[in-house]
Design a binder for these strands. Structure first.
Length: 427
RNA sequence: GUGGCCGUAGCUCAGUCGGUAGAGCGCCAGAUUGUGGCUCUGGCUGUCGCGGGUUCGAGCCCCGUCGGUCACCCCA
């Protein structure tokens, strides 16, 4: 039996890296005033229909339950979060800043950077609009990426605003669908052959040349961006930002600023994406609540590729992952007579939160030291016929200290503490 | 849904002209009867994805099929 296509198993090493990544992200989000939420993994299909229309249903894992309800595995968090906000918007202190981490599902053909179940770290800010709020979200995204060891040479945030295109079409008397078609064509620029994009543009009533030169023209001084530019500049984020009119994001519900983070080498899919979606809460709640909102999501798949491609041995994420996997103390039972003593001490150490391991069956001493080594333990304690005396071995230096068992806890505590002081990243 | 590439040991892969299957890593044992990383010695592991065809003979050639992967499509 294998996993279903597009689903993944995570063995300890990789899972430790993911866990380290997620913990780091949560710390950064909390530092920005965001609180964690979660929502059901399974939702009514209508939650997604309402937001984006029927055409997305084909990409959802959906089914009908025994009560004839149409159900979908969630493809993203935003609609659920919008519902949560709408339901309690009168009692929630504003601005509402939420983050969450969870699994999402899309029924697509799996390929590089895309699987059918993936994790997303999602951040949303409700109840406030304007450049300050937009900059806060872009700033949080940048902080999250920097926190995993990426710098301005590794990634950039491409940023635009849908108003740019609303103004572009304002002069022409064109039907609503033309704007939608225009945005879709712009979104596909660089992903499809030029002739095809041109054909789309012509069909929608636009001259390809005009659209292209509009995109190519430098736009960081466009008055639309002036407030946002100032906010970002004050946050010292300019080096991470590229203003780029070709960024529109795929879906129709964005109403203002839109942005995506991508790797500088341009080898991977977008790392993260988001924007302002002021109409969504009203739409989800049928007008019961109407709050401005902006948010983004970072998937785990592309970012893990990027981290692993960088392969920085000193990266804080790898250090934390190693720490999550490593043991601390290994009890070597050199003589089975001493096993009951070792077991009692193991229980005490474990109760005190010390990561403690020992051989479950009779094993040669050599084998036990190998296990201690492989588990990454910094201390081994040898229990043998000389009980109640035991030997503590410092694995790093091979130094041995023989002491009375009664002094063991204190001594281990000291040794682990010393190690902590020497290297705060290990304990 | 469409197309390219790939399926050989637990893993990564080699396998020449078609002649009965190999390396490295890992694992196990020993050198070392109470001491780990290195070294050395020995050992285990195969439905060559599956089915059919060609052939005296197929891992290799042909057809089909399944799986993986990358790309297209789509991308919240």
């Amino acid at each position: 039996m294998k996993t279903l296509p597009g689903f993944r198993d995570f063995y300890p090493e990789e899972q430790a890296r993911r866990r380290a990544l997620f913990e780091r992200w949560a710390e950064v989000a909390r530092a920005h005033g965001f609180a964690e939420i979660d929502a059901p993994t399974v939702e009514p299909l209508d939650l997604y229909r309402k937001k984006s229309g029927d055409e997305l249903v084909g990409q959802l894992f959906s089914f009908t339950d025994r009560g004839e309800r149409e159900i979908a595995l969630r493809p993203e968090l935003t609609p659920s979060a919008a519902r949560m906000v709408a339901a309690k918007h009168r009692e929630l202190r504003r601005p509402i800043r939420w983050f969450s981490l969870g699994s999402f599902f899309r029924l697509e053909r799996p390929q590089r950077g895309r699987s059918r179940e993936f994790c997303q770290f999602n951040c949303d800010l409700f109840g406030i609009s304007g450049a300050a709020a937009d900059a806060e979200m872009v700033g949080l995204l940048i902080a999250l990426l920097r926190a995993v060891g990426l710098g301005p040479q590794d990634f950039a945030v491409r940023l635009s605003d849908r108003s740019v295109w609303n103004q572009f079409v304002a002069g022409a008397a064109l039907p609503e669908e033309s704007t939608v078609a225009l945005l879709q064509a712009v979104d596909k620029l660089g992903r499809e052959p030029a002739e095809r994009t041109d054909a789309r543009l012509l069909a929608a009533g636009f001259e390809p040349e005009r659209v292209r030169s509009f995109i190519d023209e430098p736009c960081e001084n466009d008055p639309i961006f002036s407030d946002l530019r100032r906010e970002l500049d004050q946050r010292r984020l300019t080096e991470f930002i590229t203003f780029d009119r070709s960024v529109v994001r795929g879906l129709a519900y964005y109403t203002g600023v839109v942005f995506e983070a991508f790797d500088r080498k341009g080898e991977l899919r977008a790392i993260a994406g988001g924007g302002r979606y002021d109409g969504l809460v009203a739409k989800i709640s049928d007008g019961a609540a109407d709050l401005p909102a902006a948010g983004f999501a970072i998937g785990d798949v592309v970012i893990m590729e990027l981290i692993e491609a960088k392969a920085l041995p000193a990266a804080s994420i790898q250090r934390r992952a190693d720490q999550l996997l490593a043991g601390q103390v290994f009890l070597v039972i050199a003589d089975e007579i001493a096993r009951p003593h070792a077991l009692r001490i193991a229980s005490d150490l474990r109760a005190a939160g010390v990561r403690t391991d020992f051989a479950l069956g009779s094993e040669k001493v050599t084998r036990q030291f190998q296990a201690a080594e492989q588990a990454g333990c910094s201390l081994a304690v040898v229990f043998g016929a000389e009980w109640p005396r035991v030997k503590i071995k410092l694995m790093a230096t091979r130094e041995e200290i023989e002491i009375e068992a009664s002094a063991l806890y204190e001594r281990i505590g000291d040794l682990l503490k010393i190690r902590r002081l020497e290297n705060p990243n290990l304990q």
